[in-house]
Nucleic acid binder design. Structure first.
Lengths: 341, 341
DNA sequence: GTGAAAGCGCTAACAG
DNA sequence: CTGTTAGCGCTTTCAC
């Protein structure tokens, strides 16, 4: 009961050769239908399980794709993962998740780890402070395909799947303008990341389109965590000329800021309108409910995984569609509704 | 550049035997210091990377532990994972995470998957609707150690690490009683899980200790999601005799209920005091801030992982300490503070 | 259709 | 201290 069953055991039991067992198990079409059945039955009955290592060592393939995530704690990310998992398992691939907790060191370590595990391909989203792609070079060297999703390198030779962050930033900002805001603050994250840089550009473009000057002091680059939310709220309270609208690129941070301001007598949306980002559950629970930008995480995962698998199976048009950009949706709730309909 | 470097290549280059290379690479102490250095240098220079499969197939060990999580989306869970990761990597183990999204089918599939991947040991927390442990039997049969954490089987032959849910339930309820509540509602999850059953028992015991009768209609078994929160809040609104305190075993659901009630004119904590569970970030953002029960996720992860590794290394006292229970802390915020100090 | 045999990269006796 | 040798379980020519 302790010993593993191997194809040799099945071969012995059936008076066949290991080669035939192997062929039958792998659905080779040159084995007689009757034999195949017999083998499959025996395998089942004897409790046979492939030894993936032995298989991998021979084939050089692992049928596994690695997924590097920068953070697990978000709704968006779990949706993306769900999408990846779906497509992967539909195509017979396993996935192994490595999460870097927004930490570059960990990301580097994880990437090497996945490389050593010999994943067939890699899907990755960058940690907050990842600035170079040296650690992905091993994959390039061995010609193991890598596709980035969500947080990608601004200008890199890799394929990637992203949200249209520019458009998202533009629409969120324009929405605030349409609600009558003129002094719009933008609270965002590290703009060396495409994600935040593009949203910022969208914000600027929307202001420009409506002839509102961009003011440097209204653009706040922060860590987007709880402390940052409180700190920024405090700064707003101290401003002589407060903003009348704030676009924060993260719901959690937006919620913190908003609560803090409300607690200090600011009326939302009347004094200051708010728009967040992500459609996190928190946006529906907080009062006033937070307007936000939603994007299709599950589909992003599905698309990224499908492209990787296509490439693995040699059907890749990587060169033809190396950048895929997905469209966001603005969700308007009370926090930004100054005008009643 | 495309070909993998093997220990044979190094052996050839250095005019040594593969065995010596292997020994040097694995830090065996019977190899001469000078040779070891030479080998390590060469390996580095030639770009050698172990082939984990070849290694695993020989040793029968993968130096990998599988982690089954019922849900990733919580703060608590990511803390647990961080703890597991820390201990694992300190001991030279990799971890592979499989998440079941509260879905039994997926859990079953993940467990088999990890089994096939030949993890050396398993840490698992059960999905919402997992009721039997048939899928873990393969591990038992092959004597691969499994330790459950957080969500465990109420009465099972496995070791586990849990929160003292009874105590948590007791303290949360007693706190409400001390604040003057007498009609205390308990909103919780599936009580076939230890987690919820024990909290319920704690709730009942606290009521009993204060001579408050337990009323069946005040105990609500729900799914603890958003819809459940709204539905329960609606039911409360329709009650002739409303509760004056509610203990919800999940912060998110508590927040939803609370918001909904407040929106319908209920004053929190004056009319109804609230206590949640988990110390989720949301508990600090919502107004009034939510009292809650916090527990040490990171330590739970560390302890679970350490115990598993001890067992793997034959230092296990599994029989002696098969159940480890961790102590929760009640965090009092505005949502339950009826009495001012 | 099936079998025999070689070998993937590595480790673990057993010698020396 | 180092080398020789024999597999681990599987796939894959090449024969039959």
């Amino acid at each position: 009961m302790d010993k593993e069953i191997t194809i040799y055991d099945i071969a012995d039991a059936l008076k066949l050769s290991p080669a035939t067992i192997s062929r039958a198990l792998n659905g080779s079409d040159i084995v007689k239908e009757k034999t195949r059945k017999k083998v499959l039955d025996a395998a089942e009955k004897m409790g046979y399980r492939v030894n993936a290592f032995a298989k991998n060592i021979r084939t050089g393939k692992t049928k596994t794709i690695g997924v590097v995530v920068h953070e697990l704690r978000s709704n968006f990310m779990t949706s993306v993962l769900a999408g990846i998992e779906k497509v992967a398992s539909d195509n017979g691939y396993d996935i192994v998740i490595a999460h870097s907790s927004e930490n570059k060191e960990k990301e580097v370590q994880n990437v090497f780890n996945l490389f050593n595990k010999r994943v067939d391909g890699l899907l990755a989203s960058l940690a907050f402070d990842t600035a170079d792609w040296n650690h992905y070079k091993v994959f390039v060297d061995k010609k193991v395909p890598v596709i980035f999703y969500d947080r990608v390198f601004p200008r890199s030779p890799f394929s990637n799947v992203t949200l249209d962050n520019f458009k998202a930033g533009y629409e969120a900002t324009e929405h605030l303008i349409e609600q009558g805001c003129r002094r719009i603050m933008h609270v965002t994250g590290d703009i060396s990341k495409n994600v935040y840089l593009d949203r910022l550009d969208g914000y600027k473009a929307a202001l420009a389109a409506h002839d509102i000057p961009v003011q440097k002091e209204m653009i706040r680059v922060t860590t987007l965590n709880e402390e940052a939310g409180i700190a920024e709220a405090d700064k707003v309270l101290k401003m002589k000329a407060r903003p009348d609208g704030i676009f924060v690129t993260n719901d959690f941070c937006a919620a913190v800021m908003m609560s803090h301001l409300v607690e200090h007598g600011v009326k939302v949306p009347q004094d200051i309108a708010f728009v967040g980002f992500n459609d996190d559950p928190i946006s529906k629970i907080i009062r006033p409910k937070l307007s936000t930008v939603k994007y299709p995480g599950q589909q992003m995962g599905e698309i990224a995984a499908q492209r990787l698998i296509n490439e693995l199976q040699g059907q890749g048009n990587a060169a033809l569609e190396s950048q895929i950009v997905m469209r966001p949706t603005l969700i308007v709730r009370q926090s930004s509704t100054k005008k009643k309909n």
